[in-house]
Design a protein around this nucleic acid. Structure first.
Length: 256
DNA sequence: TATGTATGGTAAG
DNA sequence: TTACCCTACATAA
């Protein structure tokens, strides 16, 4: 579920329903007793999304850093809903409750550690002031496949396996092209495509990449190539490759 | 009941 | 490269 769009959506939601309030913080699962005690009773001042990371800042406590990983979730519920034992961390305010489940990272950060994480993240395609030049420069120094480079959060941040497959398809770029073989024009189209796709994802709260004109009546099956069998444009077979730990997908007719 | 898979990432070898 | 962490759900047995 979580690529950058999910994280930014959560930051917007939590800014609306939790920020400004004093929160009760607990760890029903029992994994973070000290962290929960440190934050309990604090006023939440801000929630920020950077790439796939969430940072919660408080009136008088260290920054809470959350990374959902592959299977983590943050569920919103009305005040007063009983906690279940699988809840890693519960943030309960007067207006709403947020429950963290299955996240890979849930920790408190000092200013240095916080800055260190921000430093090693490439430009976030969803940040209004993101600088694409930085990403392009990093791509030019690497000969690994472009598909692999797109998942490297030090090159650019927020992209996951679905968006990389879909954006490369839409821009007609083959996933195995060396990163440093992309022209500036190709990169610009890729950046703009990714940005538009993730922005739409924030609105939809899900990934929908297929143009409405091409989608037909069925609102499901909303990907061009990710886990697809045939290309909806040319009918060709979708091929896939294991690239490091993740699988890349492409139509080799439409992507050269 | 067991196994496999998932829109992620790290650390060890 | 691999092993591993986290949870939920689908499918196999």
């Amino acid at each position: 579920v979580p690529e950058g769009h999910t994280i930014h959506r959560l930051a917007l939601d939590h800014a609306r329903i939790l920020v400004g309030d004093v929160l009760r913080v607990s760890s029903p699962q029992g994994r973070h007793p000290v962290l929960a005690a440190t934050l309990d009773g604090q006023r939440l001042e801000d929630v920020a999304a950077v790439g796939k990371h969430l940072f919660y800042t408080w009136a008088a406590a260290p920054v809470l850093h959350i990374h959902l990983g592959l299977i983590g979730r943050l569920r919103e519920s009305p005040p007063g809903v009983p906690a279940t034992p699988n809840i890693q961390l519960r943030l309960a305010g007067p207006r709403a409750t947020a429950d963290l489940i299955g996240a890979t990272t849930c920790e408190l950060l000092g200013p240095e550690a916080h800055a260190a994480i921000l430093d090693r993240l490439g430009p976030d395609v969803l940040a209004p002031d993101a600088d694409p030049d930085r990403a392009f420069q990093r791509l030019q120094r690497r000969s690994i496949p472009i598909a692999q480079a797109l998942l490297d959060q030090q090159v650019l941040s927020g992209i996951g396996n679905v968006y990389r497959a879909e954006a490369l398809f839409v821009t007609g770029i083959h996933p195995l092209r060396p990163a440093n073989s992309l022209t500036r024009a190709e990169f610009d189209r890729l950046w703009d495509t990714l940005r538009a796709m993730l922005q739409q994802g924030v609105v939809d709260r899900r990934i929908v990449t297929v143009d409405p004109d091409e989608r037909g009546a069925d609102l499901e099956g909303v990907f061009y190539v990710y886990k697809q069998g045939r290309c909806r444009r040319c009918g060709g077979e979708i091929r896939s490759w294991q690239l490091g730990p993740r699988r890349a997908y492409a139509c080799e007719v439409c992507q050269t």
